[in-house]
Simulated scan of single mutants.
Amino acid sequence: MNLKDDKSKKIIVAVLLIITIIMTIVIVQAGPYNNNNKSDIVVDIPTGSTVNNVADILKENKLIKNELIFKIYVKVSNNSSKLKSGKYLFNQTYSNNEIIKDLAKGKIYNEGIKITVPEGSTSKEIIDLLVKNKLGSDKKYEELINNPKEFYGEFDFLKEDKIISLEGFLYPSTYYFEEDESEKDILNDMLSAFKSQYNEKLQKKQKDLKMSLWEVVNLASIVEKEAVLDEDRAIIASVFYNRIDIGMPLQSDATIQYAFKERKKSITYNDLKIDSPYNSYVKKGLPPTPIANPGIKSVEAVLYPDKTDYLYFVAKIDGGNTYSKTYEEHVKNVEQYRIDREERNNGGTK
């Protein structure tokens, strides 16, 4: 063995030793903060938090030893865009991988009063639900919902001139509220959820379409109330766009329903004549405010509508819709729906 070979082997051994030391340090730093402490720690990851924000919060709560190594583990595990906001229950025996796994799965720690806001709920329905669960007063909620300026400090998207109400922006989801939370804090949580769902991709698409947020959410709220099946949302959106393009009223029963204090079982011919800015049979264009709080699927349908020539649609008894390009076709479809409904109500006999 010559001196050159001996020197090369020593260098290789030294490099391997250094790599081993580094790997050991990384493994230790990414391991549990304290294997002997199983005391519960609740951490709150705010909506919109970046990986850096999450690392800071975990470090402050003594759940990770090294922020940089935690961020490397997040990146290597391909979870950079998957960490979800909410409250989590951890303890110091959790490793970085275990924490990342829970955050990516959204394994949220649920505490407080559970409130589920269904898609398509109106602000009035949301208020009734909250008050029923002893979470504030209806008067205060109404005051705040009708005054978006109260929320300008945290939510810039509300600053559009036409946004005169929080209707449409109280995102339908499941929430957990403390008994002593204020009405404003509760509405803040719902607005934060909307902000989180209305991501940069959707915002960019809105700008590409040269639409305002008010227009997107307003039309999405109508689509939400008209659609039964997910696959119909983008088609319904196309129908309303086609009507707008030719100066035709939207003619949506859902907007008229919003004009009434209590929802009616069905809209009558006389209802189509009421003097209301929400009567889309008489008034052209969008109503003054959204008519409900839509889910993200209806928002996406408005931003990514199907391309069709349809101007009319009528419900089918199976929950879907039949679409048509002309009024004559529409009349036939309405009659067919009436026949199908009567047949079903009569037990399948004509």
Rank of each mutant, 00 (worst) to 15 (best):
F313W: 07
T255P: 10
K307N: 15
P287T: 01
Q251F: 06
Y323I: 14
M248L: 13
P287E: 01
I291G: 04
P288I: 10
I274H: 11
S280M: 00
E262G: 12
D309A: 09
L303K: 04
Y310D: 07
S280L: 01
T268I: 08
T308A: 06
T255K: 06
D271C: 13
F313E: 05
G247Q: 08
D309N: 15
Y310N: 09
Q251R: 09
K297G: 02
Y258S: 03
N293I: 00
N321I: 07
T289D: 03
G285K: 03
E262W: 01
F313G: 05
I267Y: 12
L311P: 11
P290K: 03
K265C: 04
G247V: 06
A301C: 08
F260K: 06
Y323H: 09
V282H: 06
D306G: 02
K284S: 14
V299G: 02
A315Q: 13
E262A: 11
P249E: 12
Y323T: 12
P290E: 06
K273R: 15
T289A: 01
P277T: 06
F313Y: 14
D275W: 07
I296M: 09
D253A: 11
I267H: 11
Y278S: 02
I317G: 01
S252R: 06
Y281P: 14
P290I: 05
F260Y: 14
P305G: 07
D306C: 02
E262S: 14
K283V: 14
T322E: 13
S298M: 01
Y281H: 14
L250M: 12
Y269M: 10
S252Q: 03
V282N: 13
K297A: 10
T268A: 12
I296S: 05
I291S: 08
L311C: 05
P288S: 06
K261Q: 12
N279Q: 05
D306H: 09
S280V: 00
P277W: 08
V302L: 06
A259I: 14
Y323Q: 11
Y312Q: 12
I274S: 13
Y304V: 09
L272M: 15
D309G: 10
K273Q: 15
S252E: 04
N293W: 00
L286N: 00
Q257S: 12
Y258G: 10
I291K: 02
D318T: 07
N321K: 07
T289C: 03
I274P: 10
Q257I: 12
K261G: 15
N321G: 04
K316V: 08
F313P: 02
D275C: 09
A292R: 00
K265T: 13
N270W: 13
G320I: 03
L311F: 10
F260R: 01
Q251A: 13
A301W: 02
L272I: 13
I267M: 12
S280K: 03
K297Y: 07
N321F: 08
I267C: 09
K265A: 11
V314Y: 11
N279Y: 10
K316I: 04
I256H: 00
